[in-house]
Design a binder for these strands. Sequence first.
RNA 1: GGCGGGGUAGCUCAGCCUGGCAGAGCAAGCGGCUCAUAAUCGCUGUGUCGCGGGUUCAAGUCCCGCCCCCGCUACCA
Length: 534
Amino acid sequence: MLGEKAYYVTTPIYYVNDAPHIGHAYTTTAGDVLTRWHRQRGEKVWYLTGVDEHGTKVQRAAEAGGVTPQAWVDRLVEESWLPVLETVDAANDDFIRTTDDRHVARVQKFWEKVRDNGFVYSAPYEGPYCVGCEEFKLPGDLVDGTGEYEGQQVCPVHSRPVEQLREDNWFFQLSAFADRLIEHYEAHPEAVRPQSAYNEVMAFLKQGLVDISMSRSSVDWGIPLPWDDTQVVYVWFDALLNYATATGYGSEAGTDDAARYATTWPANVHLVGKDILRFHAVYWPAMLLAAGEPLPSQVFAHGWLLVGGEKMSKSKLTGIAPEDIIDHFGSDAFRYYFMRAISFGQDGSFSWEDMSARYTSELANGLGNLASRSTAMVGKYRDGALPEPGPLTAAEDAVVERLASATTNADAAMDELDFSTAIGEIRSVVELVNQYVTEVEPWVLAKDDANAQRLDTVLYTMCEVLRAVAVLYNAVMPKAMASLWSQLGAGEALGDLAAQRIADAGRWGQLPPGSTITKGDALFPRLPDEPTEA
RNA sequence: GGCGGGGUAGCUCAGCCUGGCAGAGCAAGCGGCUCAUAAUCGCUGUGUCGCGGGUUCAAGUCCCGCCCCCGCUACCA
């Protein structure tokens, strides 16, 4: 049976040798929110993340640690990279490692194919090589060193001296694809987003492309070329392929893996940081064209997280580990904050103070308190049983309408990966209900039995909106919304929260009267200030 | 040097495409309320919209020039 094409989202595969910081977690979170949302649209979804394990840096770090490269990366994956997925609460469908057998075999198959197609040739290469970048530099790329490297030419990225290397390399005929890529991107302007990233890619392409070395003889820790075992595949041309190899590229027809590939590739969205845009929007599609594979629908380059106005840096010690934040605020707040406070695609500033302020105001005081007052009142006035509502008045109609439009708007924003706007729409519903409650004063209605039906209507409205909010926020804050779902007693009649559809979220009257409403632990407890040094 | 993004309230930002009384959230102040997590609701904004010109009845928005920050890219050496 031919399966439906999955909505396929990838993160970059993270370089194992780096310590995971909130920049990695940010990308992973964005992909997770996006894919959870699409699942709740009822779509088939596939979400892939993983790690990049080859290259000189890993080889040398392993040697320095006195272990084999494989042992070195096994430990990093086990101790650092898999745990961070738990930390941010990512629900990825697969985790690819470039040392996986499936990856290694398929990378070799891929390059064999590209070579058969005539896009790989042998030539000597000599030049300055930066181990940090894992790439050859042009002499013009180098800058004068400072400090301990005064008087030497150094890599502009790593500010360290380069090594002069000469190799007989295999080259990928990148130059053959510039025109086809330009045509492709002119026909599909949405394929590189945001617009600024698209412009950069087009400008780069229009300068023309030069062929690029796709192998290394000076590196051992990599995937051997199938036709020349003295060389390994250049790490980028190994790593990029993970998006295809993970879902089964090159599998025998008729196998499960082949079926998976047929129903996932091409990717709908490759999420990338803007530093690796060119690899994803130029080299990667050129490789795919060379192998005769379809191109991904979109590469989305998000911005940097700025700390103290500067780009977070692995090497400059401004990297912040996700646990530092999540141990205090929890994974839901982490996910909410970065998706809400920063416009995806633009740089955004992070500060502990800003995160604290938003947590307190938007989550604890806003949503958390609304849940608290709603469940408390049903408990106090109706013994915890959701009452049957009476006729809706204009006040309820306004809430129902805002809920419907917010749902529509949030869904449209998610199509654009505009997480901030989507969350803002949902938040506006919470604000309106807090306002509504103040205006209709259920605690006053409760003082006179003559108002019993009116009070029923108000209590029902509060809980029914929370039911919808739980559905809409589930992609962003799955743990807290599961708790809310449970406090509303919604599971009994409506089933699992994750199974609730976005399109239906705004349909009024789903939570059945009689549902058991329980005031549970605070969704977002107020937190003490500054638990750790910021 | 070229291209792109940014420069708007104390802070974070929206508005600019398609000109029409300068906005939101946070923070701060005052008031209301008491169901709730010291919470919630309302009211309170004289800002050189980076600078200087221009077009227009009208410019944050369009045009020209310039400054600063960030990114991509080139060249000179």
